[in-house]
Every structure is written in C-alpha cells, then in structure tokens.
C-alpha cells in the first residue's frame, strides 16, 4: 500500500509540490460541462450550499479523482454530494431518476431530450 507522504499537506494543497512542465492545450467546454457550471452558480446564488461546500467535497474525493476524472466530472459529483447533504433530494430519488434518464437513449443528446 502506498503511504500518504505528508498528511499535514493534503493532496489539493499543491503550492510547492514538485511538478513538470505546464501543458497549455485548451479545449472548448461541452454543453454538459457548461450546465454543470451553471448548476453550481445557481446553487450558490440561491444559498443551497456554499462554494466552500463544493471545495470540501472535491478535496474529500482525493487525489485519485483529480487524476482520473475531468474537471466538470468532479464538479457534478461534488455538487450532488452537497445537494444530497442538504436534503433537497434523496439518493433513492436520484437513483430512480438516473434509471429513467438512462432508458431514454445511449447518447447524451438522446438521454437529455425532451426535458431541458
């Protein structure tokens, strides 16, 4: 098992970590990523949770998630974590909704149709 190098400096607290050259490649945001961004902006605007709540959930997901998930994948996971904790919907409701959406089609376009 790999040991945590220094528990006093958590993985996201990156200042000074050894790191290589900066990759300057840029991608345009996909519409689903923009929707995730909008969900966060609206949630904080309406005080459903705070940006600190988002960060806390992101931090608790760990370094592995940072390496293996994209930026907005991590965000939707962290937004959901906060919304579940706030009691706005339950895990059961989310599970039912995910099953319903999945049945609509195999692509993002097909699955989100008719609702938004």
């Amino acid at each position: 098992m790999e040991k945590i190098k220094n528990p006093e400096q958590r993985w996201h607290d990156m200042g000074g970590f050894p790191a290589g050259q900066i990759d300057k490649a840029q991608h345009d945001f996909a519409i689903w990523e923009k929707r995730v961004d909008a969900l966060l902006s609206l949630s904080t605007k309406k005080k459903l949770f705070t940006v600190d709540g988002l960060r806390r959930a992101l931090e608790d997901m760990g370094a592995d998630a940072f390496e293996k998930m994209t930026y907005y994948e991590r965000w939707i996971a962290a937004i959901n974590q906060n919304l579940i904790e706030s009691g706005i919907y339950s895990i059961e409701e989310l599970g039912n909704k995910m099953a319903e959406v999945k049945k609509r089609g195999e692509t993002y376009g097909a699955a989100q149709e008719g609702k938004s």
């Binding site: 528990p7 006093e8 400096q9 607290d13 000074g16 806390r56 931090e59």
Partner: peptide, 9 residues
C-alpha cells in the same frame, strides 16, 4: 484535518 484555506507552505 478538514477544509482549510491556509495553504501548508
């Protein structure tokens, strides 16, 4: 431990 905004460095 926990959510802290004072970086370690």
């Amino acid at each position: 431990p926990g959510h802290i905004r004072t970086p370690k460095y």
